[in-house]
Design a protein around this nucleic acid. Structure first.
Length: 350
DNA sequence: CACGCGTGGTC
DNA sequence: TGACCAAGCGT
């Protein structure tokens, strides 16, 4: 959970998760969808699937006992050199180095690294630095955690407290006054704007949702029917009726969902990697034939794990539909879908 | 090796 | 407010 995710963000998810899956065996025995449901909102959902797979692998290949050597730990899906080193040193006191956001910054400054820390050359130097701090006998876990804390609390990204740093006498960046310039930030791809549209289709107290397939964003997670309408180049200068018509047509062509847009509900701004997404949410009514198709989806209880892929393409779509109650906490929803659910809960007039 | 993957917090 | 950042990994 902590991979690329701040501790404060993880805490509540972690508690809920361990409450539901207190050991490897219970996680291994779980449905992927219930694992994802507890992860929903955290992001990087591949981590959840890989951890689930790792639990199964521990049961199958290690008799249910978590492996205790660096190589065996690293062989598990979703566990790379950092996470393997962290587990091995924290849990089993193996003399394994670690390198992550905090210590990359710390070591970059200590050795006065003037290049992009992500290149293989830089990485080799940084791992070497990490290794140089390992104690000869035991206590690697303590040292590793102490170095992370030092990076987190003192050797901060901006305005590091060099005067409080116990390592400042050996720090090249500090000696040269370069602590603000190191590590150098690598240039990122320019953010791109995307326009999405989502439909709010209510039938009695249930809302139509669909599961994302194995391609693209939010694989295996559920969302309100959503499409990318960036190419429609919708502008505010167009009449609302024109926009609605274009969006209706796009839903028909993309999802085979024939509907009429009734009104605009809300706008959600969010982002995925380098994309800045503006999601316009509309109340909509399905046309009668589309309604029959969607109703068929209701009989398909949502599946465990990824949806199967029958040869027939039209059927494939239908398996991914579901009528969801607003209070449903079993379905793994994307963060934006959760926001929309929250808004709908607050807007249940009547 | 560069890129994709999610989201929320901070300044 | 938008850019930066976070207990990385797999491809």
């Amino acid at each position: 959970m902590l991979q690329q995710t701040q501790v404060a963000t993880v805490l509540e998810y972690y508690k809920r998760f361990l409450n539901r899956f207190p050991d490897v065996a219970s996680l291994a025995a779980a449905d992927e969808q219930s694992v994802l449901a507890l992860w929903a909102g955290l992001g990087y959902y591949r981590r959840a699937r890989q951890m689930h797979q790792a639990a199964k692998q521990v049961v199958a290949d290690h008799a249910g006992r978590f492996p205790e050597t660096l190589d065996e730990i690293k062989a598990l899906p979703g566990i790379g050199r950092y996470t393997a080193g962290a587990i091995a040193s924290f849990a089993y006191d193996c003399p394994a180095p670690i390198l992550e956001a905090n210590t990359i910054r710390l070591f970059s400054r200590l050795i006065g690294l003037r290049e992009d820390p992500t290149t293989s050359k830089s990485q080799a130097l940084l791992w070497e630095a990490a290794e140089s701090f390992l104690p000869p006998r035991s206590g690697a876990g303590t040292i590793n955690q102490a170095l992370m804390e030092l990076g987190s609390l003192i050797c901060k990204p901006a305005q590091p407290n060099c005067n409080q740093c116990p390592l400042n006498s050996g720090c090249k960046a500090y000696a040269d006054g370069l602590q603000a310039a190191i590590p150098i930030a690598k240039q990122k791809a320019k953010p791109q704007q995307r326009d999405h549209a989502a439909l709010i289709v209510r039938q009695h107290q249930l809302y139509l949702v669909r599961q994302n397939d194995g391609l693209g964003w939010w694989q295996g997670l559920w969302d309100f029917p959503r499409i990318d309408v960036t190419e429609l180049s919708i502008t505010t200068s167009k009449r609302q009726a024109t926009i609605s018509q274009a969006v209706e047509q796009a839903f028909e062509e993309t999802l085979g969902l024939s509907c009429r847009i009734d009104s605009h509900a809300m706008t959600i701004k969010h982002s995925v990697t380098r994309y800045r997404i503006t999601l316009e949410c509309y109340f909509a009514t399905l046309s009668s034939d589309a309604f029959a198709l969607a109703a068929a989806g209701k009989r398909n209880k949502h599946k465990v794990g990824r949806a199967s892929r029958p040869a027939d393409k039209t059927r494939r779509e239908l398996e991914n539909w579901y009528w969801m109650a607003l209070g449903d906490d079993q379905l793994p929803l994307t963060a934006s879908a959760k926001k929309l659910v929250h808004w709908l809960n607050g807007n249940q007039e009547q």
